[in-house]
Design a protein around this nucleic acid. Structure first.
Length: 354
DNA sequence: AACGCGGGGCT
DNA sequence: AGCCCAGCGTT
């Protein structure tokens, strides 16, 4: 097929290979917005259930605006990057309130929303309003860097600017929405990070990286994130009937989610330090083995120490939760695992000793 | 410009 | 173990 443009080939490939995704069945800005926030740094497979549950709970932007933040966070639990949920809620209140329910309808106005950056603004503007502004996400970066031979580090701001211009130059003027969908889908399914399908690629005849044998070298990233080790010792206070949890505020990770009283540092507490801390609250009953929880930038080594308290009168600040209601608060993944699986046998021991 | 922010899947 | 994912906000 000679004389087909880059965009022509991508769109032709897209029509033959696209996935059937729920947010492709609508042009409603609210639904597209929800889907795009969920999909920030998140795979389609991981976000799918969250998309359905959020829209079921909040069918309109007004429903979302009227919800409690804790309810939104509970629905977001397990998805990560929890500031997305906070910004989602704040933006819903902004749209339902001052904007009187009218969703911003162009790139510039969308960009002003909390949690909406250049990628998301371009996505909503093109998908919902057919505005010809190019999306540049990780997929697009990869396709452009390989096909056009962008060898500078893609995580440098000058390169990002170049890629945005390159993407904008090649967007198909008549069909910006479909072009944007197509190039992202192409990156996700065909021009993949590892083992891309170059053998049957519709762009193989003119791909820079394929011609020069640099497919596995592009895109090039200069920085790699440092993973810092952190030890967390949790003290799980319980009388056998209730548990003391605490909301994380200004704590960096897991902001606005609930966990237990903790001591966080470079190394885990010594056994004697655990005993000493436990004594401040009650009687030490049990400790778990260390579980390792990996974040992009942290390696968390976590232990839980169950402490029996006689009475709650002089407890530290926190939220008392009945054990049977322990699923109701939004908690980080390792806390969820402890609450719903690991902890049961430990605090049931406390109950017997009461 | 550099860093912080989750969790999961793939190699 | 390292990389990446429909990135954004803060400093």
């Amino acid at each position: 097929m000679p004389n087909l443009s880059f965009s022509d080939r991508i769109i032709r490939w897209y029509r033959a290979n696209k996935r059937d995704l729920p947010w492709r069945q609508t042009h409603e800005p609210y639904r597209i917005w929800i889907s795009e926030i969920i999909l920030q740094q998140t795979r389609v497979d991981q976000g799918m259930d969250y998309y359905h549950r959020l829209l079921e709970a909040f069918p309109t932007v007004t429903d979302l605006a009227n919800a409690d933040l804790d309810q939104v966070l509970k629905l977001w639990q397990g998805l990560g990057y929890y500031s997305r949920a906070r910004n989602l809620h704040a933006t819903a209140q902004w749209i339902a309130g001052p904007l009187k329910g009218k969703f911003p309808s162009n790139y510039k106005d969308l960009l002003a929303l909390k949690g909406v950056g250049p990628y998301t603004a371009a996505a909503i503007a093109s998908f919902c309003f057919n505005e010809p502004v190019a999306v540049v996400d990780g997929n697009v970066e990869r396709v452009l860097a390989r096909y056009f031979g962008v060898e500078e580090p893609v995580d440098a701001s000058a390169t990002k600017k170049l890629l945005q211009q390159l993407a904008q130059e090649h967007i198909a003027a008549p069909r910006p929405a479909e072009h944007n969908q197509a190039i992202m889908e192409f990156g996700a399914l065909q021009c993949t990070p590892k083992n891309p399908s170059c053998a049957n690629c519709p762009l193989q005849a003119s791909c820079f990286a394929l011609r020069l044998g640099k497919v596995s070298d592009l895109p090039f990233k200069a920085k790699r994130t440092q993973v810092k080790a952190v030890a967390i010792d949790y003290f799980v206070l319980t009388d056998g009937r209730e548990l003391l949890l605490r909301k994380r505020v200004d704590q960096g990770i897991w902001n606005n989610l609930h966990d237990f009283l903790s001591i966080e540092g470079e190394a885990p507490l010594t056994d004697s330090a655990v005993q000493r801390e436990a004594k401040k609250f009650g009687e030490w009953r049990a400790s778990t083995e260390t579980v390792v929880h990996l974040l992009s930038h942290r390696k968390l080594s976590i232990r839980f120490h169950v402490v029996q308290v006689k009475r709650w009168e002089e407890r530290p600040n926190g939220v008392l939760v009945k054990i049977r209601n322990r699923h109701e608060l939004a908690v980080p993944k390792p806390i969820h695992d402890f609450l719903m699986e690991v902890g049961g046998p430990l605090w049931s021991g406390v109950r017997k000793k009461n």
